[in-house]
Design a protein around this nucleic acid. Structure first.
Lengths: 201, 201
DNA sequence: GGCATTTTCCCTATTTGTTGGGATTGCTGG
DNA sequence: CCAGCAATCCCAACAAATAGGGAAAATGCC
């Protein structure tokens, strides 16, 4: 994973602010370069999409959600061979992030963005459909509560389960992530977009 | 409301992408210019906020929502005399947009953004401000350690003080900030630039 | 020199979390 | 059908943090 200069990026982002923002971040740090910009995936632009030789596509999930309803395609990977990265503004529900190679949050620091783009490139080459998200859905729920500062008792009451179960989940979370402290898990949850800064007190 | 060239804008936006995006849009269209950037309204940066002579403040509502819980302020106008414009990513609930002179959406076209900023300049008022109790330097050191996930014993050893002293400091930190959980203190430390995400895990 | 604040130290009791076992049920893929 | 995993529950022993008091130096400001 050496830093080849100027990997080509296609933006499918309707927000002018975000387009200029990504261009700005790229120009600050180099390595990546915007080669094309689309504001949607309409039929007219779909042909152009195929012709752009991009290493990475950064797409606003809002665009894609709309496109799936229009075209009937269910996976973003059906559009292109490039690594596909979501540019997340709102927290994505369910598991819709799984179809992307990575998910960039607009609050991510530039260094994190570059890291995720690199990660997207390498994971895309290795395996077309990797997961790497090891926590079960229940464990993620518990993790969110922990990161919010809730007590085991409170979590148990919230989900109507025994406090022993909560403790067991926490043991598994600690084992899987390798993170032992609440502080670390909070940052983990923040970085993985499981929670928002404003939801902690 | 004459269109003086280069009205000064202060950004209180934690997202690097959005900061660069706004700078890019401004550089495309002129008239407005970014004079300062803050990533939060922490107690440490609050003094700087007072000293920046901005015509308009563009703020991420997420930042402000968090700040109100920390400081107890209820209106954004208590922070400054400048016109205050929200930069909206998520749809705002209830009537919280009412406290702003205008609300920019990230999907707004550049022309609409400029129009809204002009509108905000011509319609706003002012208010006084108040104080806050700072953490002492020692308390900040302890807080950083706590946010990094260190144990009281480890902190005590690091500074060659008794564990009782560490506990006392933590009690005072909790009292001053009103934040009782490690998760909350971690976010507090992150938002106040006392620590970096990378220093936790 | 007073006065406020910071920094330091100490104690007991209680609450909360962690560690390291074990166990049952139900579902799923090979 | 069986192995594996997720989710649930339980216990005991131990570690760590919190909640309450109190107090004594050191610092710095008026």
């Amino acid at each position: 994973m050496k830093s080849e200069s100027n990997r080509k990026v296609l933006l499918i982002v309707p927000s002018r602010i975000m387009v200029r923002g990504i261009e700005g971040v790229f120009s600050d740090l180099g390595e990546f370069k915007v080669e094309g910009i689309l504001s949607d995936i309409s039929r007219t632009s779909e042909a152009r999409l195929k012709n752009i030789d991009a290493d990475i596509i950064i797409i606003d999930p809002v665009v894609f959600d709309y496109a799936t309803r229009q075209s009937g395609r269910s996976k973003i990977s059906e559009y292109s061979d490039a690594a596909v990265v979501a540019l997340q503004t709102v927290t994505m529900e369910d598991d819709s992030w799984k179809q992307y190679d990575e998910v960039i949050n607009i609050y991510d620091a530039p260094a994190d963005i570059i890291r995720k783009l690199r990660s997207a490139l390498s994971s895309h080459q290795e395996s077309p459909a990797t997961d790497s998200h090891e926590l079960s859905s229940r464990e993620k729920e518990i993790l969110i509560c922990v990161a919010k500062g809730m007590l085991n008792k409170e979590i148990a009451d919230l989900y109507n389960i025994s406090i022993y179960t909560v403790i067991t989940h926490r043991k598994n979370i600690t084992r899987k992530t390798g993170i032992k402290t609440v502080a670390g898990l909070t940052v983990y949850a923040l970085l993985n977009n499981l929670i928002d800064s404003s939801s902690v007190e």
